[in-house]
Amino acid sequence: MSFVSDTHSFDSFEDALEGQFELGVTDGLPVVPPTPERVAEMLAAGGVSGETILGEVPTRDVLVTAEKVAINAVMAGCLPEYFPVVLAAVRAFLQPKANAHSTTATLAGAAHTVIVNGPIRHDIGVHGGQACFGPGFRPNATIGRALRLVIRNVCRTVPGVLDRASFSWPLRYSFCFAEDEEATAWTPLHVKLGYEREQSVVTIQSIMRLFQVTEFAPESEEILTTAYEIARHMGLQRDEWAGDGRSVVLVIGPEHYRRLVADGWTKESIADWLYPRLVADTAGKFDQKVTLASPDNIWVVTAGGPGIAQSWWFIPHLATPTHELILR
């Protein structure tokens, strides 16, 4: 297999490892040296040729090819069987409404989450249960990291250059998890988006703010009340360009969905109940309108482990969530 990328030569594996730091292409952690053999294996697993164009960032004159994505996936530590997920994640990230330039150059330091649905979760082990937002799970850690390395190395989002985040945040190392579809009888996210249950799908949501909803009350309405009050803490202003597709994601954990399911709630009824309360007029500095076009813009996902009575809001940057079928 031939490649168009420039090459670098090193005298040893250790030199190659250290050399990636000197080249300025890591996220600050060591990376797997992207040898042509490893990259070829990645492309083969994805069923794509290196010159395949996955999308572009027009403001930056960037065309993203499968070869560059495969190189970064190797560096992130992905196994080849993860690569179809990485390809779909990059395609979703590069959809125009994901607003790749804005969400990665912003002072606010927005991050992106990769949510995986469908059978591939089990095939490659993307974790959606206990501690699924954190470290310890290779598919989660490396798929999310691969997207971030593509954002850095291919899309030119280097801190101090086109990455202008004032603080940035740890979610920019990696953030990928699976929906725990089997946890409830609720409709999985990808099925709500129009895919078949047997298909595998990635969803990308930009994250401007991440809010924890901790509510120990057993009453389901009390849980949802706390949820909307927390989301309204800083609100969400309308962005004309992002338009009616701009959405929030509510990840509901087991202690909450157990109570909600027992009281007969569904994803649809949760969204219908929350919507008027979220979009009610601003009433104060910390009680602000969350501007959404309809209840369909509240995307409910199940994940996490038992114990604390907790759910999480993902409030977007200037983008809409995007999704792509994982091709295998």
Binding site: F3, S9, F10, D11, D15, T35, I71
Partner: peptide, 13 residues
């Protein structure tokens, strides 16, 4: 043993 790696970046400019 020489190790060759591929460059992960797109050029600048």
């Amino acid at each position: 043993m020489t190790i060759v790696t591929l460059d992960p970046t797109t050029g600048f400019g």
